[in-house]
Amino acid sequence: MIQHMNLVFQAEGLSVGEGAFLLACCNHTDAKGYVIASMQQLADESHMKMTAAKSNKQRLIQRGLLASSERYSPKNGARIADLYRVNLDLLATMKRARTDYGPTLIEELTFNVPKKTPRSAPRSDSDPSPRSDSAPPPSDSDPPRSDSDGDAGSDSDPLLLPSPSPSSLSLVAADADDRMDVSPDGEREIEAPLEEHNPHPSEAELPLQREGSRKNAAGGGRIVAAYAEALGRPVLNGTKAKLDRQAVELLAQGLPEAWLCDRAREMAARGWSDLVRHAEMSTAPVTQTTTKSRRSGLPEWCTKCGPGSPAARLNPRFRTLGEMGSGEKCPNCHPDRVAAGASR
């Protein structure tokens, strides 16, 4: 037991060998000091040869600090580990007197105890001193008060709770980081946000939108395939979804599919993945390969709304007087306005 080993450390009058052997015995003692361990085990734990261990054991037995008894197996009479007992009472009387060993530290370590300021007495109604309201309110940049500050538990301290919603600025920054790509040469391309369109299209627009959406989705897949072919390896799922979404958006704006495929191949060669940004920055001429065809039920485009976007020729959503895809419907070529004028 560790308590018995501590008695050996505090005992006085033991030789080095006696102390080491006694420590090995106390490593296996029970509450009454009995030890069951073989002689070889005690010699190994006391770092002695067998002859030295037996010699120190005999000296401890002669001094009355140790008692031993041979043990034999009741089954076959074979010799087994001896039984030892440490004289704990005698060992406790050998405790050396308390000794001052002097300073052991280079410098003393101290602790600063915070000073507590007494609470102010409550104001009475008869107190003639007026309360000063000229003190400036605490600034938002002031650090919060800790419990160690004076009068930390005052009832007048403001209770500042954390806001349950994140800052709007952090949301804007996080959204910008999600839409940003970095090219190998350090060019940063920010994905253009998707434009908001009218969530409730008219009945005249629905068949045209469905037909245009199917064609744009097929064209977007071919643009992504051109990007993967130029890249020379499969496109990651996140990049693939992003390119497909941007390709459909650009096709809906009237940009030719072949022209967008060429831009996608250029991006793959440079390690970019923002098709919208690259299409805006590209100086390659746009060659319209599709022929003008009037859709069934869609009036001819007046070329004055959109404003001026070739997407308005095929998509009535862009036939507005404001910015692209927003504002008042064009009275000259928007299906709803034209149909309403004809009904009158």
Results as ranks from 00 to 15, higher is better:
Val286Ala: 06
Leu321Asp: 00
Gln253Cys: 09
Glu323Cys: 07
Ala264His: 04
Leu251Phe: 04
Pro316His: 07
Leu298Cys: 01
Leu314Asn: 08
Met324Leu: 15
Leu250Glu: 01
Glu300Trp: 04
Ala312Gly: 00
Asp262Ala: 13
Leu255Met: 12
Asn315Pro: 06
Gly271Asp: 03
Glu300Lys: 12
Ala268Glu: 11
Val248Met: 08
Glu257Trp: 03
Gly297Leu: 07
Ala264Asp: 00
Arg317Thr: 07
Ser309Trp: 03
Glu257Gly: 02
Ala311Asn: 10
Thr283Leu: 09
Gly308Lys: 15
Glu323Trp: 10
Trp272Thr: 15
Glu300Gly: 08
Glu266Ile: 09
Cys305Arg: 12
Leu298Thr: 13
Gly271Lys: 02
Ser282Thr: 07
Ser273Trp: 06
Arg277Trp: 13
Ser293Lys: 15
Thr320Met: 03
Leu260Thr: 05
Pro310Asn: 08
Ala258Phe: 03
Gly306Ala: 03
His278Ser: 15
Leu260Val: 11
Ser273Phe: 06
Arg317Asn: 06
Gly306Asn: 08
Gly254Pro: 04
Pro256Phe: 02
Ala284Arg: 10
Ala269Ser: 12
Trp259Lys: 00
Glu280Leu: 04
Cys305Leu: 10
Lys292Ala: 13
Val248Ile: 05
Leu314Gly: 10
Trp259His: 00
Glu266Lys: 15
Leu251Pro: 01
Trp259Thr: 00
Asn315Ile: 00
Thr283Met: 13
Lys292Glu: 09
Arg277Val: 10
Ala312Trp: 05
Gly306Gln: 01
Ala252Ser: 09
Asp274Ala: 14
Pro299Leu: 09
Ala312Asp: 02
Ser296Ile: 10
Cys302Asp: 09
Gly308Asp: 10
Gly306Val: 06
Glu266Leu: 12
Arg265Lys: 15
Met267Thr: 06
Ser309Pro: 09
Glu280Val: 11
Arg263Ile: 14
Leu314Trp: 04
Phe318Ser: 08
Met281Gly: 04
Pro299Gln: 11
Pro299Val: 09
Gly322Val: 01
Trp272Pro: 06
Arg265Ala: 05
Thr291Ala: 15
Ala268Val: 11
Arg317Gln: 09
Gln288Ser: 12
Arg317Trp: 05
Cys261Lys: 15
Gly308Asn: 14
Pro316Lys: 02
Thr287Ala: 02
Ala258Lys: 09
Thr291Glu: 15
Thr290His: 13
Gly254Asn: 07
Gly322Ala: 02
Gly306Phe: 07
Lys292Asn: 11
Ser282Cys: 01
Ala247Thr: 04
Thr283Phe: 15
Leu321Pro: 02
Ser282Ala: 09
Glu323His: 12
Pro256Ala: 02
